[in-house]
Nucleic acid binder design. Sequence first.
DNA 1: CCTCCACTGGAAACCTAGGCTC
DNA 2: GAGCCTAGGTTTCCAGTGGAGG
Length: 414
Amino acid sequence: MPLNQGLERIFDNFLTGGNIFVNRDVLGHDYIPENLPHRDEQIQRLGSIVAPSLSGSKVSNAFIYGKTGTGKTAVAKYVLSRLEAKSRVVGSSLRVCYVNCRLAGTNYRVLADLCRSLSLEVPFTGIAVNELLKRYERRLESDRVAEVIALDEIDALIKRKEDDSLLYELTRLNETLVGSSISLIGVSNDLHFKEFLDARVVSCLSEEEVVFKPYSADELYDILSERAREAFVPGSLVDSSLRLCSALAAREHGDARRALDLLRVAGEVAERGGSKDVSEEHVRVAEHKIEHDRFTDALRFLPLHQKIILVSAFDLDKAYPEGSITGDIYQVYAELCNVVSLEPLTQRRISGLLNELDIMGLLNARVVSFGRHGRTKKIRLGVPASIIVEVLSTDDMIGQLFSYEPKRVSRRAA
DNA sequence: CCTCCACTGGAAACCTAGGCTC
DNA sequence: GAGCCTAGGTTTCCAGTGGAGG
């Protein structure tokens, strides 16, 4: 059997750690380091808020804000894990639970996570939210535990509908429990999200507030150099590259996650290129690669109908680069569906899907009024057309649509 | 000032696919 | 098996609307 030498080398490289990385995971999103630079103040604050739970006392609820990549999640997880470790040492009946509300998605699944944190198995679906809440409450009381709950990206739970019933129920639970207790730590990157909440929930949740400011370029540099020491082979990282990563991320509201991504991808680029160190040039390449991958990933995993909508926006973009309108998109979309013998969705639905694509940044949709000619959305591509072709033409069904010539649409958009 | 276009976007109902309880 | 529940995607219906043209 012929040996694929290139592949062999990649595997070997990986086993020996290559000449760049010692431990790439250190730069990953879910890695919580031993030390969180420039967050001592917040750690102390949060620590002193939750500390009473160790002796079974009731803990104030807290609310944490800060933009993405300011270390909220890291600090929350860090403090919770230390709290849990301490409680095991002193033998208190404390539980901690971290839930990412955006990943969980619905009230039901958040509650299901809470149940699981008390080793209470619940089905994926099938029972009423109220029933779930009752079981959770019963378990809390029977085990006489004090639970500290971090609800990360708590805004994701509210934004969709004005449904803050779960938060309301939890704050109510908080007041009525006798032998046990729960305390809530809400984490959000949206400063205005409290406006969507019931006043009682707000007052209950914001007993304490901790604010996370964006990192400065220097602070990012400290964070990166600490992680880099663990992640990279000594001497394989040029200091100016580290400076560049910090500066680029600082420009984007001091986002540490972004800085770590840049550093990790730059390392990967260098490693793949067989380079022995990570240069500024690698960081520049990484910057482009991250942007490119963001689009291609989003595109690849899009549901079928959204892909077809993008193709119709792409077709119209060729003919009218100044932008098209909902009606035109829908017309072409319906034709394309016809080509692949698919039942088109309604225009109302397409209007909604266009909004979703806009939020993802794959399209730019803006409501405009053409006076006599009505009110609609003006739509342009948010992704370079080349990327759309690159990704979607690999899909068998969608690929054939690129050669389709749309009929002339009724035009009025200027 | 009034009309009226081509929609927008809210609300509610419906459907499917899962699952529980009795 | 009946009668509930869930999520998530969709359809149906419709009141609301910014502003060019009359």
